[in-house]
Design a protein around this nucleic acid. Structure first.
Length: 718
DNA sequence: AGCACGCCGACT
DNA sequence: GTCGGCGTGCTC
């Protein structure tokens, strides 16, 4: 009986396609295969096999079975689950998994090796052969230099065949971890957490590892990783990090603990490394993978543990293409793998905290700060009482504290989560606010480059001399501060201080970030002015003062997580101060010191903050007590978009268990020349929101110019 | 996602 | 008369 292979192709196709299994191939579920699609050949994966032949048409045959390991069953299940949950096509989820396989393998490199024994030997020749025993050389010149002989000696050996060249794949930058090396000494609180986590074996479990900044969460999960690796010699571990910059620091930490660099995974990997890492994961030779959110889709063979570090971080949410939240999907993946997930954070998301409180997650709290370090003394600066001088942004209280800190030879950090010089440029003559030509968002002034930049689309233009609207000359004024403007003010206030700015504009790549971080650690910088790029993960021993320039910033956004984000950010930033023996101070500038968020920050009382915020969410019917989904529509033509949005509204399936709001203009209604509208759906927790959204989507057919995206559990409301 | 097929403007 | 612009639709 012939068989039909159901092949999923990493393209936005509605379902897996049927192909005939050729007699000479014995396919299995999970096989990667080449199949004809239209006039081309693509790679797909066998999702199922059944007996039969094409019913009313002849099926094309599978072309070839590709010579790599299969995609494990749990990975296939995860792909299907993720696609259904995110209301996207399974092929799109598969594309996430196959990204590493599709990238080009590293080109082989030449290396010189010993060949046949030479006809005669001389001391120089012996030195060359000895050098080859210990190291690999790509060129004859390198080898000659290392052996301390002339190039002629090497050339003669090559001509004779005593030295030959081979071409092989470059060596992998990682090696197997050794979990038997001794770990760090743990304090009682850490040791208790490790014991509790090590008890959660063999079954699906979620643990929230909840500990203040500096309490040593990393040591705890490193020991749990070591234990999993010891007890199961094929166990694989995935550690997710919100950002590549953090990944780099983490790699060093892992290398120190396990005597080997773990496998790294993020979107900036060179194609050759990416391919090698992907293959190491499917073959099971990659034991520890440290990566950004997309690592969650890698085809692990025996994934026993997932650690989601800084689990509250919004960077886990992918906002375009396949829209997903890596923390939420990590929990699902662990369930399918029957493994453990550790969600680690000093400021857990309200969702995770709620799950812990309800007993769905194991809750491990690390109370003590590691070693002698203590939490910083946190105070609010009431900007109404001690406002900054005209044209400035730093209250005299904060400026004085910086002065005093620098005077003691200690370091200070001023935090403002806003890039550029000024977030808004307006014309004094006509009142016009400058916007990008194809967007509704304001243009941000950057003084380093002398340009106006749209942070949403990347559009930029030189700052004009005249107002583009009314043509008045020298009428443009910069409104509000960005980090560049704080730097200007700081240079005026502290002319002798060594000042540096840490933002994505000053640090274009990971190497630049490392340089700046080490300059800060070495004490070559006195005052660091930073956006959120510096808010997490780094440990600056001589930093004793953190000033938050505008703590109200996050509260003005008007979205449901504004308060939570502000609390997390301020707590994280304040946690930078005083991590060693010196006590740290955090000063928080706010115009609304009576806001519950500000009061909770000042009191350092996270539990009070969370309780109040959860109660507000419950009363307002917001997550985690309900679930949200968004539909984002965009099109170049506003009228057409509105027509479709209206049609879509009337196609919404009728249920009394959820509310559909909209269509409304998205808060930033024009992006890259496309108008945007959105719906927001709110459902009680028992409703299958994904199924509802899928049904709704299936009922409408957007015109070609209208793009429709569904975002389950949206984080931002752009 | 590609790649074909399709129906309207400037060229050897 | 054709070469080719990229809009719509299909790929087992």
């Amino acid at each position: 009986m012939p068989r039909i292979a159901q092949v999923l192709i990493p393209l936005p196709l509605p379902e897996a396609f049927d192909y005939a299994e050729p007699e000479e191939l014995r396919l299995t579920v999970g096989d990667l295969v080449a199949v004809p699609l239209g006039s081309r050949e693509v790679t797909g994966v066998v999702m199922g096999l059944r007996e039969g032949a094409g019913v009313n048409r002849r099926l094309k045959p599978v072309g070839a079975q590709l010579a790599v390991a299969l995609l494990p069953e749990a990975t296939l299940k995860f792909i299907a689950w993720a696609a259904r949950y995110c209301v996207d096509l399974p092929g799109q989820a598969l594309a996430m998994t196959l990204r590493g396989h599709r990238s080009r393998p590293a080109a082989p490199v030449r290396s010189l090796v010993r060949g046949a024994a030479p006809a005669r030997t001389t001391p120089a020749r012996e030195r060359v052969l000895a050098a080859l025993e210990n190291a690999a050389f790509a060129t004859a010149a390198d080898l000659a230099r290392a052996a301390g002989v002339s190039a002629g000696v090497v050339r003669a050996l090559i001509d004779e065949g005593a030295v030959t060249e081979i071409w092989e794949a470059p060596p992998d930058p990682w090696s197997p971890p050794d979990p038997f090396r001794p770990g760090a000494r743990l304090n009682p609180s850490q040791a208790a957490a490790v014991t509790a986590l090590n008890r959660l074996t063999d079954d699906f479990a979620v643990a929230l590892l909840d500990g203040v900044t500096g309490s040593g969460k990393t040591e705890v999960y490193l020991e749990v990783i070591a234990e999993r690796l010891r007890e199961d010699p094929t166990a694989q571990i995935l550690v997710l990090m919100p950002e590549i910059a953090l990944t780099q620091a983490a790699l060093a930490r892992f290398a120190e603990r396990f005597g080997a660099t773990p496998v790294e995974w993020h979107s900036d990997l060179a194609p050759g490394h990416r391919r090698a890492a992907w293959e190491a994961v499917t073959l099971g030779t990659a034991r520890i993978v440290v990566g950004a959110r997309s690592a969650l889709f890698l085809p692990f063979v025996n994934l026993r543990l997932i650690v989601v570090d800084e689990e509250h971080d919004a960077a886990y949410k992918q906002e375009d293409g396949f829209i997903y939240h890596a923390r939420d999907l990590a929990v699902v993946r662990a369930r399918l793998e029957q493994g453990l997930v550790i969600l680690a954070s000093a400021t857990p998301s309200l969702e995770s905290l709620h799950n812990a409180q309800e007993g769905r997650y194991h809750w491990l709290r690390l109370s003590e700060r590691h070693g002698a370090a203590r939490l910083p003394d946190t105070r609010l600066i009431d900007m109404r009482e001690t406002p900054p001088p005209r044209g400035g942004w730093l209250s005299p209280v904060l400026a004085g504290a910086v002065e005093e800190t620098l005077g003691r030879g200690e370091q200070a950090l001023l935090f403002l989560n806003r890039r550029g010089y000024a977030p808004l440029v307006l014309c004094r003559a006509c009142g016009e606010r400058l916007r990008a030509p194809d967007s509704d968002s304001w243009l941000v002034e950057h003084r380093y480059t002398g340009r106006l930049v749209c942070h949403l689309t990347g559009f930029s233009m030189p700052k004009p001399d005249r107002c583009p609207t009314c043509d008045a000359e020298h009428s443009l004024i910069s409104v509000g501060p960005g980090v560049e403007r704080i730097e200007e003010e700081a240079r005026r206030l502290f002319p002798d201080a060594r000042i540096a700015v840490f933002s994505s504009d000053t640090l274009t790549d990971a190497a630049a970030a490392r340089t700046l971080i080490s300059a800060m650690t070495e004490g070559e910088i006195d005052l660091l002015i930073a956006t959120q790029a510096a808010a997490k993960g780094h440990d600056f021993p001589n930093l004793t003062l953190v000033g938050v320039v505008d703590a109200d910033l996050g509260l003005r956004g008007g979205d449901l997580r504004a308060a939570e984000r502000t609390f997390q950010l301020v707590t994280q930033v304040a946690g930078r101060a005083g991590r060693r023996d010196r006590p740290g101070r955090a000063l928080i500038q706010t115009w609304t010191p009576d806001h519950p968020v500000m009061r909770a920050i000042a009191a350092g009382d996270r539990d009070a903050f969370c309780a109040a915020e959860l109660e507000e969410r419950r009363l307002a019917g917001l997550p985690p007590f309900t679930r949200l989904a968004a539909v984002i529509l965009s099109a170049p033509d506003g009228a057409m978009l509105q027509d479709f949005a209206r049609a879509m509204a009337s196609a919404a399936p009728n249920t009394d268990r959820l509310d559909v709001f909209g269509p409304a203009d998205a808060p930033i209604a024009l992006v890259r020349g496309r108008r945007r509208m959105r719906f927001l759906v709110r459902a009680s927790r028992e409703v299958d929101l994904s199924a509802y959204m899928a049904t709704w989507r299936a009922r409408v057919k957007p015109p070609a110019s209208v793009r429709l995206a569904i975002d389950i559990d949206p984080y931002t409301f752009l």
